[in-house]
Amino acid sequence: QTIHNGDQTYHYDNPEEAIKVAQKLAKIYNLTVTVKGNTVQVH
Rank of each mutant, 00 (worst) to 15 (best):
Q1A: 11
V21M: 14
K27E: 15
T2G: 11
Q41E: 08
Q8A: 12
Y12I: 02
Y10C: 10
E17T: 14
I3Y: 09
A22I: 04
D7I: 15
Y10D: 01
I28G: 03
V40F: 01
V21I: 09
N14K: 03
T9C: 15
V42S: 00
E17W: 07
Q41W: 13
N38T: 07
T39E: 05
N5M: 12
L31N: 03
L31T: 06
Q23E: 14
L31Q: 03
G6M: 11
Y10L: 09
V21L: 06
N30V: 03
G6L: 12
V42M: 02
I28P: 02
A18Y: 02
Y10I: 04
A26N: 11
L25K: 00
A26W: 06
A18H: 00
N30C: 14
G6H: 13
Y29A: 08
T32V: 13
Y10M: 05
Q23T: 10
I28D: 15
N14P: 03
Y10K: 02
A18D: 01
T34D: 03
A22C: 12
P15T: 07
V21R: 04
V40H: 00
E17P: 00
N30E: 05
N5F: 13
V42C: 07
T32G: 04
V40D: 00
E17V: 11
V35A: 03
T9Q: 07
Y12W: 03
T39I: 11
G37K: 02
N5S: 12
A18S: 01
A22H: 01
D13W: 05
H4Q: 10
V42L: 05
H11W: 11
Y29K: 10
I3L: 12
D7G: 13
V40L: 06
N38I: 03
V35L: 05
L31E: 02
L31W: 08
N30Y: 12
K36L: 12
N38S: 09
D13Q: 09
L25S: 00
A26R: 14
T34A: 03
N5W: 15
T32A: 07
A26H: 10
Y10A: 02
Y29N: 07
Q1N: 10
Q1D: 10
H43A: 04
H4G: 09
V42H: 01
D13N: 12
T32R: 07
Y10R: 03
N30K: 09
I19L: 13
G6F: 13
Q41A: 06
Y10G: 02
V21E: 12
K36G: 03
K24P: 00
P15S: 06
V21F: 12
I28K: 13
G37A: 04
E16V: 06
E17Q: 12
T32H: 10
P15L: 08
V21S: 07
L31C: 11
V33M: 02
V33T: 03
L31H: 09
V42D: 00
I19K: 12
N14V: 02
I19D: 05
K36D: 10
N38M: 04
T2S: 10
D13G: 08
H43S: 05
G6R: 12
P15A: 11
